[in-house]
């Protein structure tokens, strides 16, 4: 498998038999160009993040120096410790791991089920329901927030994580469903047909054939969902009351206010940046770890070929 991954993600150009040195040189030139672009783009993309890292290590007086400086004179790691002194930051992080983790699991699983239904089955009303599903993407969340609040209030779910988790298990939202549907549509139908002829049931086909082929899409969906849940602010803010129950999305907003009030009016964005870094670190690790699934590929060739 691993070997197949390697070869699969190799560029076609590389695999072309290299007959003369001219082509070789041309190819070398092409690779150099690609690396240059990738490195320059990386630097550009990294800038805001790097700035956040460096600022998180600055002393207050360094933050607004002119001319502007990127690096702190001496890195102040104490900023990170201070974040935990002035707020229940660790608690907030843990809450978010639980909430975002469960919500992501539910959302990806149920969105895959729904997307598969839209992509593979024929039944009356399918296209209408799909149209309706897409339509829900278009109504701004601001105006459904209060009705949702009242709904969960009636259910007695306020100040609990249920409103943040339970709905995810019912479809995971139009975005994910649409995404999974589009992805399943690209899988050749012969896969299902072959399995059906072998006598496999719908659920087994979905579970044993379709899902394993969809790992890049599932991982992408999971990352997108997790980041969204991790950062979400307004809905959890309206739902949760107890400070200890806050998720990190609310926590960071609170921290913004707290940071500007810690026994000085000096800019304390360094603490905000440190908090922001700690908020980002878990998703960064997650993203880095999930990467290998991006290139796992859909081993369609093996089945089709």
């Amino acid at each position: 498998m691993a070997q197949e991954v390697m070869t699969r993600s190799t560029t076609p150009a590389l695999r072309k038999p290299l007959t003369d040195s001219g082509a070789r040189r041309q190819q070398l030139l092409g690779r150099t160009l690609l690396y240059t672009i990738a490195i320059v783009a990386s630097i550009l993309f990294m800038m805001p993040f790097a700035w956040t890292v460096f600022s998180s290590l600055k002393s207050p007086s360094e933050l607004y120096m002119f001319p502007p400086s990127w690096l702190p004179t001496t890195p102040r790691f104490a900023n990170y410790a201070e974040v935990f002194d002035v707020s229940p930051f660790g608690r907030w992080l843990w809450n978010s791991v639980i909430v975002a983790g469960l919500a992501t699991f539910g959302a990806v699983l149920s969105a895959a089920l729904t997307g598969y239904s839209f992509a593979r089955f024929r039944y009356p009303g399918r296209d209408l329901i799909f149209l309706l599903t897409l339509g829900t993407l278009m109504l701004p969340a601001e105006v459904t927030l209060i009705p949702l609040y009242l709904l969960f209030n009636k259910a007695g779910w306020l100040d609990s994580y249920r409103p943040l988790i339970v709905p995810s298990f019912f479809g995971g939202g139009a975005f994910l469903i649409f995404m999974m549907r589009q992805f399943f549509l690209t899988l050749p139908r012969d896969l299902d047909e072959a399995a059906r002829i072998d006598g496999a049931g719908y659920l087994r086909i979905f579970w044993q054939i379709i899902l394993p082929l969809s790992i890049p899409a599932l991982v992408t969906a999971a990352i997108i969902t997790f980041i969204g849940e991790w950062n979400s602010f307004l809905f959890p803010y309206i739902i949760l009351n107890t400070k200890e129950k806050f998720t990190i999305g609310i926590g960071i907003k609170y921290f913004q206010t707290i940071a500007s009030n810690i026994d000085s009016i000096e800019p304390r964005e360094n603490l905000l940046m440190a908090a922001g870094m700690m908020m980002t670190a878990p998703i960064l690790v997650l993203f880095f770890a999930a990467q290998r699934y991006f290139v796992q590929g859909i081993a369609m060739s093996g089945i089709k070929g």
Binding site: P124, G125, D127, L128, I129, P147, L151, K154
Partner: peptide
Amino acid sequence: KFSRRQFLAGSSTVAAGMLLAACAVPA
């Protein structure tokens, strides 16, 4: 085009859903 039957089936599903939703939401 949706067939007439499809349309009827679909829209009755939706109508029933809206009804249900309207009951469930005290908003």
